[in-house]
Every structure is written in structure tokens, then in C-alpha cells.
């Protein structure tokens, strides 16, 4: 049993080192572009600024209160006809791939671009329509605060006079301290990429979420 646990840790660590992204240099002349062409800066914490938001239950959620959990994040708007439902489904698929204990220890946070129409009630409709569960927090806030989040995550978007938005289709995996561990652009891509990154953050000691025996045991079943 003990041996297999150590073996598991070794396997997970190996998997992590293989999937680890290239470090993004940060000095006078080094911010790196990923191969998809979107250069971004993944240093520092997205929780370095604090903004007030409200969730689908009408409960106030301070941005920095999201710290302390591994999170899957995305920006969206509930009236989005095409992309956002797919982003939501992509995250649901990744969530379903996680073992239960892992699922219970993460948060899923969707921040709305739409400060005008996406009220808590409207977000609750979206929550129900997509059959979500309480680990999902759908947040809305003032447009200036939404822009701040978009800039912390480096999401390009534009509001049109119709009230709709054009936006990059991005899903993030963020560690407990607010460092972006994965930034994935596109729709309908392999959900394993997301779930594996979440597991890597949950079950390695270089994450601020220190591994617990329960988590390691859970990781064992995840690895199977």
C-alpha cells in the first residue's frame, strides 16, 4: 500500500513535470508568447486587486475571497448564443472527469462580461438551465470591475451597442494563490487537459494546496 502510494506520487510528479508549461520569463525584454499566438503574463496573482461581485444567489463575493482554492475560471455572458454555452459544457466535462474528492475541493468561477443584463436572477436561470451545482459561482459586477478581471486574466472583449459581446474563448485553471496555471483558448477541446491540470495542482507539493493523505489517496483513483 505504502509502496503504491509512493509510486503514485512519483507517477503524478512525472506527469506534472511533463505537462509543465515553459516558464514565462519576466524581465525587461522577456514576456513569452505561447504557440497559439496569444502572449500573456502568468506571473503574480490575479488576486492582487480586490473588486466586489455578486453571485447567482445574490450573495456578495469579494474577488480576493476566491483565494485558497484551485479554480477553473472563465468569462462569459448569459445571453451568449454560441460560445459561452460551449465553454460551460467544456468545464462541466472536465469537472466530471475529476474524482469526487477533487471535485469537492475546487471552485468553478464564471465571471459575466454583461454588467447590464446579468443580474443574480438571470445568472440563476443560467445556472438552472445548465444544470450546475453549488461549486459553480456565477459572478456579476460593475463594468469597470469586470474590465479589471478581464485585464488580470488577459481576456480581450468588446461590447457592442446591441449589448452583446465579442470575446476570446478562454478557460483558466488557477492555483490557490491566484497564479494562472493553464490558459486555454478555444472551444470543445479535450477536457482532460483541464482536469489533469487541476489534479496536478491538487496533488503536488509545489502548489500552495499542500497534499493531504486523503488527497493523495484520491489521486490514486484519479490516476487509474
Amino acid at each position: 500500500m505504502k509502496t503504491s502510494t509512493y509510486l503514485l506520487i512519483a507517477i503524478v510528479c512525472f506527469a506534472v513535470s511533463c505537462s509543465k508549461q515553459k516558464p514565462v520569463g519576466k524581465n525587461d525584454t522577456a514576456v513569452t508568447a505561447d504557440t497559439s499566438g496569444t502572449s500573456y503574463n502568468n506571473h503574480g496573482s490575479i488576486y492582487d486587486m480586490d473588486m466586489p461581485f455578486t453571485d447567482q444567489n445574490g450573495k456578495p463575493v469579494g474577488w480576493t475571497s476566491l483565494k485558497g482554492k484551485v479554480r477553473i475560471m472563465a468569462m462569459f455572458f448569459s445571453h451568449c448564443p454560441a460560445a459561452c454555452p460551449i465553454i460551460t459544457e467544456d468545464i462541466k466535462k472536465a469537472e466530471a472527469l475529476l474524482p469526487e474528492a477533487a471535485r469537492d475541493s475546487i471552485g468553478i468561477t464564471m465571471i459575466s462580461f454583461d454588467s447590464k443584463r446579468d443580474t443574480s436572477a438571470r445568472l440563476m436561470e443560467f445556472y438552472r438551465a445548465h444544470n450546475l451545482n453549488p461549486r459553480w459561482e456565477l459572478l456579476h459586477g460593475a463594468s469597470d470591475d469586470v474590465r479589471m478581471i478581464a485585464n488580470l486574466l488577459n481576456v480581450d472583449y468588446k461590447e457592442w451597442p446591441s449589448g452583446d459581446f465579442t470575446h476570446q474563448n478562454l478557460i483558466f485553471v488557477v492555483d490557490c494563490s491566484g497564479r494562472i496555471a493553464l490558459r486555454r483558448e478555444g472551444l470543445g477541446k479535450d477536457p482532460h487537459e483541464l482536469s489533469e491540470k487541476v489534479l496536478a495542482l491538487l496533488y503536488t507539493s509545489n502548489s500552495c494546496c499542500a497534499p493531504t493523505p486523503a488527497r493523495v489517496a484520491d489521486g490514486l483513483s484519479a490516476a487509474r
Partner: peptide
């Protein structure tokens, strides 16, 4: 697509890396 153009689009004072 783009022959690397998007991957290498770089503001002054920065470096882009692509393969």
C-alpha cells in the same frame, strides 16, 4: 496560419517565442 505572425506580434520592450 499567419506564418508565425500572430505568435510573434510583439510590443516594444518585449520578446515573443514560438516554434
Amino acid at each position: 496560419p499567419g506564418g508565425g505572425a500572430e505568435a510573434s506580434f510583439t510590443a516594444p520592450g518585449h520578446t515573443s517565442v514560438f516554434s
